[in-house]
Amino acid sequence: MNSMVQQLCPVQSCKKIATDTFLLRFNSPDIVASAQPGQFVNILTAEIGKGPLLRRPFSISRVEDNIIELIFHVVGIGTNLLSQNQPGDWIDVIGPLGQPFHRDADYGTALLVAGGIGVAPLPFLTNDLLKYGKRIETFVGYRNAGQVFTKHLQNVRIATDDGSDGFHGNVVQLLELFLNQNNFQKAKIFACGPTVMLKALTELAKRKSICCELSLEGQMACGIGICQGCAVERTEDTAKYALVCKDGPAFLSTEVNL
C-alpha cells in the first residue's frame, strides 16, 4: 500500500475490443513497478467539475514494459468519458491499490473464472501464474458472442447466456461440468464477476472443497480505506466488515458473506 502514487499518466491508446468493451493503455513506470495481479487503479474520468464526482476503480488487466492496460465496459457517464481518451491525452490515476490475489498457495491447477467484464484482471494473473509454473484452465462467461474477449488467457472455455458462442448457459455451470469430468486434487479458483455469479461459485467451491478466491466490486468514494464506503460483511473475525478497497478486492470465498 505504501507504494501508491497519484499521477497524470499519458494515454497510449484506447480501442474498442468487443461490444461496449474498451482496452485503455497508459504509461506509468511507477505503478507498473509495484502492481500485482488483482490490484486496481482509481481514475478521474474527467477534470474535476466536468464529469462524475467520484473516481472510477478498475482492475489492472495487464502490465507490459511501462504500460498499464485496463479493460472496461462502458456502462455510464464515467466509463463513456474514459473510452474517449486518445493518444496524447492524460489521465489522473491513483494506484496500485488493494490486496492482490494470493497466488503462492499450495495448488497445482489454477481455475480462472470470470463473468462479463470480470475478465479484466485475468490476463495479469495468467502471466504471473505461468511464472509460478501453475497449470491454468480459464472459464469465461458472457451475455453473447459479441462481448467475448479472451486475449492473453490460457486454455479458455467460453459460456454465453444466449448460446451464441461456446457453452449455452452461465460460467459456473460450465465450470461444474468441467469439474465433474476432471478430478483435481489440488486446484484453486480465482474469480471475478457479478455478485450473483460469485455467490453461485462460492457454493460450488464449497461442494467441491476447492479453495476459491474472489475479486469483489464495491461502491467506493476514495479507494484507499478512508471513506469506509465499500464495506463487505466478514463471515468471522474481530471486525464485522472488511473494506473491498483496502482489505480486498481479493478475498477467500470463505471470508465474506456476499
Binding site: P52, L53, L54, G218, Q219, M220, A221, C227, Q228, G229, C230, A231, V232, E233, A239, K240, Y241
Partner: peptide
C-alpha cells in the same frame, strides 16, 4: 463501531450520499 450494512455510498449529481 462496525458501521452500517452495505450499501453505504451512492454517487449523485455533483455529490454523494453516505451512510457509514
Amino acid at each position: 463501531r462496525s458501521g452500517n450494512p452495505p450499501q453505504r455510498i451512492v454517487e449523485t449529481a455533483s455529490g454523494m450520499l453516505n451512510s457509514i
